[in-house]
Design a protein around this nucleic acid. Structure first.
Lengths: 315, 315
DNA sequence: GCATACTCTACAATACTGATACAAACCTTG
DNA sequence: CAAGGTTTGTATCAGTATTGTAGAGTATGC
């Protein structure tokens, strides 16, 4: 269990990161890179976040950024979460090229550990939304296409898929355990191929504060009414695929839930029923939360006015 | 028997937990980690909860958290909802009944957060191996069977599957990033159905220190030679399914890798080639690491020698 | 009466602390 | 390109903290 409250002594941090204890102290003394808590007697106590920071420092070092500048780099990114260019060297023009190269390398070598490093760094320097859109998803989809043609890349795809499921699953659980907002049910009716996209969505939403429940590929629309009786949700999120308009309409009418669809729009969806609370999520990942917030706020108002007296879930 | 009110003297606790009596007293005196009841004459009397607490302390110690901090960590967890509740039910007779009930409840309500709490607790009180064997896998398999018959339980299965993938993936990455041992390649040729078992295995092995790379369901035996050229591994771990004896034999001869098979043995495997380094992993999860350690140690010493002599794990 | 437990002090093995020192690598600058 | 300075990782040191264990002396329980 990764307790947020857990604090580690310097030796443990050294083991976990591979940085000499002496060096850790030197970084702190010379550059203030870390400011661990102290015991009353002065022993350093590092939090899990400190450990993460050390790992970030390491990856920046690998890119040839001098230690003395790293603090500025890290702190300036912290204050402006989204868009600041990280260190200069990396990103002469396109920051993602750098990460693409890293991804390529670690995936070819099936090195999950290094791949995780690269992933963490990209996400922490930018954001999950941006990193996904610019790096992860294009890469993943490209491998998927290749894998169908070239058997030699099947392993790359299988490896990345497994990695992304693990990593995104991990973050989803972490965020979700702290989430306190409305309850969303995400159902991946798209099967294996939709797994990564679904997990990504779950990540974004739980990070934003929604309490997300995730259902895997064995569920179909038919099951949903039964499920919705058992637990109360504020909205339903579905992939476009395997959504039969009529079935969906009926579902919405019965459940009186707001439904969000994600993925590419296809024919029928252009003519989606207008009088039902069915919405398309924007393709831009960064806009998804705002879109849901907005519709749910509206729905929240309507609900009270419209169907006053009814419990928010169906009966 | 074994009511929750049972109280043990310090020696018994020491035996049950492996912690020296002197140490237990020191923990109490120096850090107030435990506050056992006392007889009128001052002898310590520990409850079952105290014993559990000691075990929690041990797992935190393993993570490198200093004894002096552990009290805070445990107490801050206590203030959070789930963690302390089990106290009574757990140990009446069968601790797993308690968790089965919790699992049932949280799965029915699709409540990932509570489910995670229950999972964490079971794993930290016992071990992943034990919790998997006694609780998680039986539960998972039961749902799998039900789900084929009763459509109403399809969601339960889909939910648990997704949860386990996320949770096990998360722990796997965490362990793996600290692992420093030999490199293992686990390939899940079994597809969706093998995902949880494979992740479980990856967890156990990476926790034990092996550097584990994980390949998902798109890989077949045919791909492996290509893959093995790109990255070096010390051994290969495969599910029994989809293993054609002849193909496997050839693969082993070419790659000169030790291969471990997991899952139920089927017909052909009884007659597995005896002169090749192909071994079955024991069904008992707790014994898997030892088995691999043993074979790899042997292989390491007499790499190219003839290992016809020892049929230990095969069979 | 013998095994077990109690308290308290002591001790050895680590681990951590700040400070200083030094060599190698990386810069300026002339 | 050479001289001189700076940066950075590591080594060392003396002093202190932490932590498991040992022992002495005494009390309890079956």
């Amino acid at each position: 269990m990764a307790d947020e409250t857990a604090l580690f002594p310097i030796g443990t941090v050294s083991e976990q990161t591979g940085v000499n204890t002496v060096t850790l102290r030197a970084w702190e003394r010379r550059h203030g890179l870390l400011k661990p808590h102290r015991t009353p007697k002065g022993h350093r106590l590092y939090s899990q976040q400190d450990v993460e920071r050390v790992k970030q420092v390491l990856t920046l070092l690998e890119q040839g950024i001098p230690v003395s500048r790293i603090r500025d780099v890290l702190d300036s990114n912290k204050s402006r979460p989204m868009l600041l260019q990280p260190a200069r060297d990396i990103q002469t023009d396109n920051p993602w090229r750098h990460y693409r190269a890293l991804f390529q390398r670690w995936i070819r070598q099936l090195d999950a550990r290094s791949l995780e490093h690269a992933f963490n760094e990209a996400v922490s320097l930018y954001s999950l939304e941006l990193a996904s859109q610019k790096l992860v998803l294009p890469f993943y989809r490209q491998l998927w296409e290749q894998q169908e043609l070239l058997p030699s890349t099947a392993a790359d795809y299988a490896f990345l898929h497994e990695f992304l499921c693990a990593k995104l699953g991990s973050r989803y659980l972490q965020h979700n355990s702290r989430a306190n907002g409305k309850r969303l049910l995400i159902v991946n009716t798209a099967g294996h191929d939709g797994q990564v996209e679904t997990l990504l969505l779950a990540n974004i939403l739980s990070h934003h504060g929604y309490q997300v429940s995730l259902l895997g590929a064995q569920t179909t629309l038919d099951h949903l009414p039964l499920i919705l009786e058992r637990a109360s949700f504020d909205a339903l999120v579905l992939p476009n695929s395997a959504c039969i308009p009529s079935a969906l309409s009926i579902l919405v009418e019965i459940s009186r839930l707001t439904v969000f669809l994600f993925g590419l729009q296809n024919e029928w969806t252009a003519e989606a029923p207008e009088n039902l609370p069915i919405y398309w999520l924007p393709e831009e990942l960064g806009e998804i939360c705002a879109a849901i917030d907005q519709e749910l706020a509206k729905a929240g108002v309507e609900t009270c006015a419209d169907k006053a007296g009814f419990p928010s879930t169906i009966q």
